[in-house]
Design a protein around this nucleic acid. Sequence first.
RNA 1: CGGGGUGUAGCGCAGUUGGUAGCGUACCUGGUUUGGGACCAGGUGGUCGCGUGUUCGAGUCACGCCACCCCGACCA
Length: 491
Amino acid sequence: MAKELTSREENYSQWYNDLVVKADLAENSAVRGCMVIKPYGYAIWEKMQAALDGMFKKTGHSNLYFPLFIPKSFFSKEAAHVEGFAKECAVVTHYRLKNSPDGKGVVVDPEARLEEELIIRPTSETIIWNTYKNWIQSYRDLPLLYNQWANVVRWEMRTRLFLRTTEFLWQEGHTAHASSEEAVEETLKMLNVYTQFAEEYMAVPVIQGVKTDNEKFAGAIDTYCIEALMQDGKALQAGTSHFLGQNFAKAFDVTFTDKNGKPDFVWATSWGVTTRLIGALIMTHSDDNGLVLPPKLAPVHVVIVPIYKTDEQRSMIAEKAEQLKKLLEDEGITVKFDNRDTHKPGWKFAEYELKGVPVRLAIGPKDYENNTVEVARRDTLEKKIIPQEEVVKHVKKLLVDIQDNIYKKALNFRNANTFECNDYAEMKDILENKGGFVLAYWDGTIETEEKIKEETKATIRCIPFGQQHEGGKCIVSGKPSKYRVLIARAY
RNA sequence: CGGGGUGUAGCGCAGUUGGUAGCGUACCUGGUUUGGGACCAGGUGGUCGCGUGUUCGAGUCACGCCACCCCGACCA
């Protein structure tokens, strides 16, 4: 019993930390607040990247790459933007080290101070718009539909593996358009891409909406988001897409000549998702036995564990396993045959459950004789003996079933923990004792928003799309309200 | 940055009134095992976070520093 997990009930946050480390996804590094993403965790990120990147390409985007460093002066050009990020920027002031005078180690060479300090990007709007200025003259140059996969740094006080680290990986799309309508359309299009990715690949149901002015991205006109509900009843923002209006074009003087020969500022969007999605994935599906990964993002779909007593059995079963592996791989399924003799089958079962491998096949002497295989599915832990000739068909179906089942399970959980609420005391009680999403009327004022935040520690996550009711009274002030907002404590 | 806590073998921990460090696990070797985290025997592994002090003698006492974790405020 080498790797006992803390149970979710006992301590959810400890469970999460244990799981990330014990499933070998990531660990804390020698640098405060920064993590080492280990191969298994990185493999999940690569799967996410591949799926998202394909979707970006299909919607007409290309990748490019901008520098990690941004001249300090760029940052002061968009007032709201500076305000939003100033407190968490890492600043490069020098470019050289030298041997310490006392002979012990190295010191920063005071002679090598930069004329202008460089900011390590917390996001790249400023350098990108400074550059787009040179790329855009006419409406014929538009739109620019670009994306970059990059690392960014935000100097956070308190960090948690994947959920909040000082450095993290993400993609940031930055597009330029000739009209407001087109930019808004792009913003919503990418929100839909994120939604589709979350639901179809991650099997995480999300709620689409728009952020309040108070919660929106610094420098945006509107911030759209998708919000997911974790098993502990807390919300997690799984993606954001911003309509930036002409704010950055004005700040960096990016103009174009329209069809009528008139100059105008360019319209902008930006949108991103981060390695935080791995945290969302973990907290949505996993259980007290370990990770539960959706087949579409699992680095390994199927693990084959041989069971044997003698060397002869071992080699006969290995041959059978290799045959099955090949058949499954021909169907595009990723298979690991764990033929190590250094660990017992029971150990391997526990290990791959911890790592969330969706399907496990076990082949032992009895199976060899009967031409059968034991199939176990990770999401329900059910086991079943099936004939070998049905393995491929069965596994293919099982992978689809698991993807489907964990999505439904997550959706049911969210539905069971989403409360339409019209009474403030009741809302407080829900947020305090049960957790989950509360849908309540809000009068639209920042005063009410701040009051809710202060008294419940929950925030307005978004104003959900597609509300068709006639309105009601604000849950706090009693003033008329057009729509319900999504309220929850959040990561 | 505030409150709390912890630093002793890779990991998790014990260490009494101060006497030169131990347990579990992991690791290595050999053997028996293998259908849910095997067992037996033997073995390797420590600058006790760092520094200064008290003392004949410090993991243990004093002072200072550092790091990490948890809880808050800020955030994807």
